[in-house]
Amino acid sequence: MISESALILRALARHDNDAFSALVRMHQGKIRAYLVRLCRSYDLADDIAQETFLTAFRKLQSYKGEGNFSGWLFRIAHNCFLQHIRKTKRRIEITEQFGTQQELQTEQYDSLSTEQMDLEQALTQLNPDETATITLCHSYGYSHQEVSDILDMPLGSVKSNISRGKVKLQKILTKPNGLEKAS
């Protein structure tokens, strides 16, 4: 199997569609799962994820190998998400609408345990900043500083969003009827 860095070099040097497609296959699962948590809609997340990868393909020359490639993709994905919100000017509507309307579609995932289903539902009750910071830090293993760079958010805000979000999650998951609001 070709390594990620070899694929990046191939995509960069020859503008190779196949090499970049292999990178898309490698990272799409995480990027889309992240966007689903933010958008609370599978279709919208798919659209933004497509835009993310196309933007990454166009701007691949600007990736200088500083930091890891998935961090760079998460940064683009987050910017695309914010751009979409600004464009539609429906941040509140999206948050409220999808926060209450989204049904968890288990068939969309590779595999999903009951606990993971509960977690995904619980995450819909957090605000986008809390969801983004917790997902990047705890689910994808980025440090607070890296999350701060990816989201272009002050380090203090990253930490406070994480701790506030985790307390909320804890409450939702331990309350017997905590998930009723989300379902």
Partner: peptide
Amino acid sequence: LAQPAVIADRGFS
């Protein structure tokens, strides 16, 4: 949280 759900490809790539 450390075991995030991953969305299946299903033709996305």
